[in-house]
Computed example of a mutant assay.
Amino acid sequence: MLPGRAPVPEPVDPLISAAGRTWPVSSGSNLLDALNGAGLRVPYSCRAGSCHACQVRCVSGEPLDLQPEALSAERRDQGWRLACQCQVLEDLQVELFDPSRDGLPARVQALDWLSADVLRLRLQPEQPLRYRVGQHLLLWSAAGVARPYSLASLPGEEPWLEFHIDCQRPGAFSDSARQLQPGDGLRLGELRGGALHYDADWSERPLWLLAAGTGLAPLWGVLREALRQHHQGPIRIIHLAHDAAGHYLAEPLQTLAAAHSQVQLQLATASELAAVLAELRLVSRQTVALLCGSPASVEAFARRLYLLGVPRNQVLADVFLPHA
């Protein structure tokens, strides 16, 4: 050591305190990985800041938040952060989301299979929940499994909250949903506003609703909201499914189309998608298009709309990410 030169202190790893434990992590560690690496089982789905399943409350200390706009100012003021989007740079004291404390209680009102793979779940919340079409809600099972689902119900007209759960592939929440019975309890997490909605100012404009799989759920709500508000422009609905059996709302959609002359319905299978998109023709640059489904299907829809000349600010999309 040179005379008069103070020693350089060794960097100290930050400490995380959660669930009665404290342990060090490397500076810059992802908060979600640090918590789950310690065995605390923080749920997550997308790791992209969309699903909000990994919310934790920072009681002391502040992580580096890579996506602060993902949460409302109110939630952030309460200390909530998305663990998947946070890096640990200093000591943190964290409270995990506790569904029994932080979630809204709800009971299963009804369950029925709309197809071999799609389970319709209707919940009755303990307290009325104000929401709009196109929003989604985090559902917590009794076992502590969380997953966001889009609302398919129509606010103000249906007393239940309706969700369409894709059970085609194994998943922690969908597997537990198969075992539910009427009267069983669930907890509701944060209500979020997705990109999809209906605006009364669109009343005279063409409205295209393009969905794949259970991406139809929020658009089923948007369609009925548009009709409830007496939408005057043409409404075109395209539902993409793996096969004909996958059109799980074919009958109610056909009933609505028969009752409303401005509604045009097209049911397409995966093998027909290219031909269906090629046949699309733009009749007005005022067209508003709402897209929902898997990343690949939404990308295919959006690419065709771009080539047709639909302005990008008139294309609203919500992507259903695969189970993590």
Rank of each mutant, 00 (worst) to 15 (best):
R281I: 00
T287K: 03
A274E: 14
S17A: 15
V108N: 10
S153P: 12
G193D: 14
G193E: 15
L207I: 10
L207Y: 08
P311F: 11
A258M: 09
D98C: 14
P125D: 03
A244E: 15
H239F: 03
C51T: 07
R312I: 06
L111R: 15
W202G: 07
A172D: 11
V56R: 06
A70V: 10
G215C: 08
L123V: 13
P14I: 10
V222M: 12
R76V: 11
Y248G: 07
G61E: 09
W220R: 07
W202H: 05
L121P: 11
R312D: 00
L196G: 01
L82F: 04
H239T: 05
A212Q: 08
A244S: 13
L290S: 00
G215P: 05
L89T: 07
T22F: 08
Y306V: 00
A226F: 09
G103W: 08
C58M: 15
L31V: 06
S17L: 05
D77H: 05
Q179A: 15
R132A: 15
A73E: 13
L207A: 07
S72Q: 10
V315K: 01
L219N: 08
G193I: 04
D184T: 04
G144F: 04
Q168E: 13
G194R: 04
H231A: 11
A18H: 01
H260P: 06
G309Q: 11
P148G: 10
A116I: 00
S29L: 05
L267F: 12
H136P: 07
R101Q: 13
Y306G: 13
C51H: 12
C51K: 11
L31Y: 03
R285M: 01
L138A: 14
Q67N: 15
L121W: 10
G246V: 00
H260T: 03
A70C: 13
G61I: 09
P14G: 09
I16N: 03
Q93K: 05
L82Q: 02
L209I: 01
C86T: 04
S174C: 05
W202P: 11
W113T: 09
G156P: 10
Q55R: 15
A275C: 05
A143P: 00
I238E: 02
V222T: 13
P99Q: 04
L137P: 00
E90S: 15
Y44R: 01
A172L: 13
L316V: 02
A152D: 06
Q229W: 11
S271Y: 02
V276K: 02
A18I: 02
C51L: 05
I165N: 07
A270H: 14
P159S: 12
A241D: 04
A53D: 01
L191P: 04
W208E: 04
A324M: 02
P182A: 08
H136C: 08
L316E: 07
A116F: 02
L216W: 15
Y44W: 05
R304L: 00
V56K: 05
S141T: 15
D13W: 14
S50P: 00
G246T: 08
V108I: 15
V88W: 09
G215Q: 06
A211D: 10
